[in-house]
């Protein structure tokens, strides 16, 4: 992998961030982790990431808010939504609003890696245009 892609992970379950950071960095991504929506939003305002992986339901700020902020500040960034049971509706809304894909809890790191790989290709296709 020539370029290290930058990924922002936000989930209010701290363990999710901790594990994904380890797992994704091993695969070759640069990972920044947040366990609260507002802090992540602030960071997104500062920096354009290649990928944003966000839980759809969080206190105060939810995945849709994150998605809106990303589309606003960095349209090229691919947003991947993490959903749980009973939040399928929210995930669908996110897709309509321009999220790249969603991944349902519980998932293995490989599941996310797979989605990210596809997203990388999609980004490459985007930049070829």
């Amino acid at each position: 992998m020539s370029k290290r892609f930058e990924v922002l992970v936000v989930d209010d379950e701290p363990i999710v961030g901790k594990r994904l950071k380890v797992a994704l960095e091993k695969t070759g991504y640069d990972v920044e982790v947040f366990d609260s929506g507002p802090a992540a939003l602030e960071r997104i305002g500062e920096k354009q990431f290649d990928f944003v992986v966000t839980d759809v339901r969080m206190d105060n700020v939810d995945g849709i808010d994150i998605l809106n902020k990303v589309t606003e500040t960095s349209p090229r960034t691919k947003v991947i939504i993490i959903t749980g049971y009973a939040t399928i509706e929210l995930a669908r809304e996110a897709l309509v609003k321009g999220a790249y894909d969603f991944i349902a809890k519980p998932f293995q790191p490989d599941d996310l890696r797979e989605v990210l790989e596809r997203a990388v290709k999609a980004r490459e296709l985007d930049s070829d245009k």
């Binding site: 379950e13 363990i15 999710v16 594990r19 994904l20 380890v22 797992a23 749980g84 049971y85 809890k105 519980p106 998932f107 293995q108 790191p109 490989d110």
Partner: peptide
């Protein structure tokens, strides 16, 4: 789903 997801991720790592 949340604890289960945490377990899955942790176990995988």
């Amino acid at each position: 789903n949340n604890p289960l997801n945490n377990i899955t991720l942790t176990a995988a790592v």
